[in-house]
Design a protein around this nucleic acid. Structure first.
Lengths: 343, 343
DNA sequence: CAATCCGTTGGTAGCGCTGTCAATATTTGT
DNA sequence: ACAAATATTGACAGCGCTACCAACGGATTG
């Protein structure tokens, strides 16, 4: 009578323990630290769990342990395909682990990010994955105070909050432009949309590469804060072309824009690459199957997500990586759209 | 001494209550049912919450109330852009509400779906959004036993578990084919990838429309269980063309395939639409900016997500919709790629 | 004027689990 | 063989919140 046997019909840890003939706390340990149990008890608890089809109550667990098994993920956008690849990596990597993912959308606002971080903080997540390295000082303070494994993803930089996985957008853009220059293109424009911090760094890479070759001209830069789209790519290209009629190549800060440019070229009977070279960024699947195949900078988005979640979970198991910053690099995918003009 | 004042440093509801000069339970009611409080107490609690910057402990709340404020979302894939649009609608629609989204990925497997449903069940979500109408009997049983607002999305059909938002894939495909037939095309092929239940229904629509016009020929059907991609579109199109050399139109069960077909046509110097009409499905943004602009069937994916979450949250507030099944319809976007041949 | 009602408030008793630490088995070293 | 160290195990007390029910005061009623 002191303890109602199965009051709500729901199976509790107590029932499992009773069936296994152990104390509840031992049954509890079965989940948290199975190695600490003797083989025989472990067996008994395991089969009791299976027999009763026991599922732990996460709320009770969280309340008692002051922790959750939730990994918070802050990503700026769901619209952008780049992030769905990253998310996919994160979800795939979390499968099979005890952790679940709590995703939230910052909408490219670092203030929104701060707000969400505060919300997460209150719920004591087991780990955290955040996008980029441009957090507000307050956000940084919150993250540091949470003392949970934290990974900044998408780019790398100095002074990580904890860990990082990404690559240098600056260098990737620099490499793309250097390639175009090496192929003999001179009037190389750049098209940019959304202009988040990572896109800005690509722009920096472009600028420095152009300056290094004494090819820089501010009129070659066309950007907009508008979110990216193929249609926008065509429109920006039209703008650029009217400003710079002798344009011979375009670097697009993402592939959507690049494909939009290709179609705009088709519309205007501009041959690619002879009259206009095109290079995109990210190397989405469609780039290789366009006509002509479009050059791009391959970024390892899926791997980034996967790495990030793995770094969090292994850190949670006490194995911190030797090197907290992982550079996943990039690869120049040179295709027909940016090969040297026949001349 | 009976109660440690602020043991962990964390602000609890008790502290708020003390500052407001009310009992903890009254403070608790402030969050759950503010109208039940007198205006003066409500004021006092409100400012205490603000002053202490109180954030409720969701785990404690869930444990005590046997409910959570989490809405579970089951979606088959993150890779497919269609679902990122839906998810975006869901997240946008949940913003500002008290509910948070717990997303999980079924990977197009109804067994995996069942497993995830069982997991959700144990955590007592406030609501549920699931994809499609092809659940296992056991999944259905679980959903019915959960007694929380549930919305099936993406398609509509008879006998909803609870509510539904979607459209008829069968009719959408039927309409697309009827359009092609009306434009004078006769040898109309269909390209299908992934072949999930909704794609199957599009295939059914195709088949019936073709049969109704006495144009059906099984060789016109090329499908694969492989996930969709642009490259795949090109490859499937090549297969189809080798089987049916006199092909004059292709209906693609999604836009990726359609764009792949367009590029394959460019590669083979097949003029679109004169030598080959193309119609896609979903009307992704890029369809309109291709050259020539590609026809497609517009589906309201974002709205579907938004509607679904709204239906759940309003049901949670006790306002069940008069009609549990919402048909969001579709719209034939007829563009140059499927206009009647000049002849 | 007592009986009744309703709107508002508070007390009590857990929700199901785990942290802490003590207690008990088991092994090891000398 | 016995102390010391180490592996296993269990008792107890709560985590922070809310369900349930009782109590209160004032308004309404016959």
């Amino acid at each position: 009578m002191a303890r109602k046997p199965t009051k709500s019909g729901r199976i509790r840890l107590t029932e499992v323990a009773k069936l296994a003939g152990v104390s509840p706390i031992t049954a509890s340990r079965f989940f948290r630290n199975p190695e600490a149990l003797s083989a025989s008890k472990r067996q008994r608890v395991e089969s009791a769990v299976k027999e009763l089809d026991y599922v732990p109550n996460l709320a009770a667990r969280a309340l008692a342990s002051h922790r959750t098994e939730v990994i918070g993920v802050l990503i700026p956008s769901l619209t952008n395909n780049v992030f769905s690849d990253v998310l996919r990596g994160i979800y795939d990597g979390s499968e099979g682990s005890r952790y679940s993912i709590q995703f939230a959308n910052t909408r490219y606002s670092i203030l929104q990010e701060e707000k969400l971080l505060r919300l997460f903080q209150a719920q004591k997540p087991a780990g955290l994955i955040v996008t980029g390295i441009n957090q507000t000082p307050e956000s940084r303070r919150i993250m540091e105070s949470m003392k949970c494994p934290t990974v900044q993803i998408m780019e790398i930089g100095p002074d990580p909050v904890d860990m990082m996985v990404g690559f240098s957008h600056y260098e990737a853009a620099f490499a793309a432009i250097s390639h175009l220059i090496a192929q003999g293109f001179q009037r190389i424009g750049i098209l940019g949309a959304r202009m988040d911090p990572r896109v800005q760094r690509r722009l920096d890479g472009y600028r420095d590469a152009m300056k290094a070759a004494s090819l820089f001209d501010p009129r070659l830069i066309v950007t907009t804060p508008t979110p990216t789209s193929m249609t926008l790519g065509g429109a920006l290209f039209a703008d650029l072309l009217s400003q710079v009629p002798d344009l011979d190549a375009v670097f697009c800060v993402n592939d959507d824009l690049a494909l939009g440019v290709l179609f705009e070229c088709q519309r205007r009977q501009i041959t690619v690459p002879d009259a206009m070279a095109i290079v995109g960024f990210n190397d989405m699947e469609f780039m290789a199957s366009a006509v002509p195949p479009l050059s791009s900078v391959r970024t390892n988005r899926y791997e980034m997500g996967r790495n990030a979640i793995t770094m969090v979970t292994t850190a949670l198991e006490g194995h911190r990586p030797a090197e907290p910053v992982v550079d996943l690099g990039f690869e120049l995918m040179i295709r027909q759209s940016s090969t040297a003009r026949s001349a």
